[in-house]
Write a protein that binds this DNA or RNA. Structure first.
Length: 293
DNA sequence: CGCATCCCCTGCCTGC
DNA sequence: TGCAGGCAGGGGATGC
């Protein structure tokens, strides 16, 4: 599921419920997701107050009192659901009632406000960890992360610098979290189409052009910002698992221009191309070979 | 180091 | 109808 817009959508849904509340009890229904939960996970969270809920790349970071941070990654199929004032009745009133399988409800966070939050993840590629706030920036999960595309400092020049000298195709370079943090397969395809850049172009060749060395990088940075901002406003893309925290669906999938549209006409005005699917780095790329150069 | 491949896991869709 | 195979929004390990 989740790329930057989906994680940000989840963050915005959880923040008003979490921030200012305390964890009263945390129930684990299995010992691991992608990795084992850290030792004494539930005990270490009990009683802690959530002071802020941030996002970095595709990670959610809940800053807790006493200096610790709860770090959460949704993997491919993770989702959170808010149960307002339903503490104590889980799972009786929620099972099967919200179109997802309670067998994959792995973590239940009870809050001092009487609300609760459930983490559901069928594929279990997600994970959670507890990290001291002072260690976050140098922690291996975060230290190598690249540019945050929605921050003011993200522009063509910064992007070109990160892509310079890379031989990998643009598609693969943009999926690399060390270059731009938070992009995934969908939004890389969509941004490249908007910028009319071929996913097969060498990433390092983006900036080489007579006259204006960053024209293509500027267009790409702009396309990335635009597609992410539009997707967030739409609540993200719900292909299978992504849900807002109230259980509703995002709708940006209806606005995809190329992703999962193999064989359809290219939506670029005046372009007569057909959307193609190729495989790069083992993953599907959708693009128009006619207008994306 | 960069890059490709495979793998983790479950569910869904396709084709036979 | 059943079943095998392929594919899926992420990312880490491994091998060249």
């Amino acid at each position: 599921m989740p790329e930057l817009p989906e994680v940000e959508t989840v963050r915005r849904g959880l923040a008003p419920v979490l921030v200012g509340a305390r964890f009263t009890q945390v129930d684990l229904r299995r010992p691991d997701l992608r990795f084992p939960f850290p030792s004494r996970f539930s005990q270490r969270l009990a009683g802690r107050r959530i002071e802020a809920l941030r996002r970095r790349a595709k990670y959610l970071i809940a800053d807790l009192d006493e200096g610790c941070a709860l770090v959460m990654h949704l993997g491919m199929s993770g989702s959170f659901r808010v149960l307002e004032g339903e503490t104590g009745v889980y799972p009786a009133r929620t099972r099967f009632a919200r179109s997802r399988d309670a067998a994959h409800d792995h973590v239940l966070f009870h809050l001092s406000t009487g609300a609760a939050i459930v983490y559901n993840d069928p594929r279990r590629f997600g994970f959670m960890d507890l990290i001291a706030q002072t260690d976050l920036t140098r922690h291996k999960l975060f230290r190598d992360l690249g540019l945050e595309p929605l921050e003011d400092t993200f522009d063509g020049a910064a992007l070109a610098e990160r892509l310079a000298h890379k031989a990998a195709p643009l598609k693969a370079a943009l999926l690399d979290q060390r270059v731009v943090a938070g992009l995934g397969n969908i939004y890389v395809c969509e941004a490249l189409h908007r910028a009319r850049l071929s996913p097969r172009r060498a990433a390092g060749a983006l900036s080489r052009r007579n006259g204006d060395p960053t024209a293509r990088a500027d267009a790409l940075a702009q396309a990335i910002r635009e597609v992410l901002a539009e997707a967030i406003l739409a609540g993200g893309s719900s292909l299978r698992d992504h849900r807002l925290t109230d259980g509703s669906l995002g709708y940006f999938q209806h606005r995809f221009r190329v992703y999962d549209r193999e064989g359809e006409p290219c939506p670029t005005p005046g372009c007569s191309g057909i959307v193609r699917r190729i495989v790069q780095a083992g993953r599907s790329t959708f693009y128009c070979a006619t207008c994306q150069k």
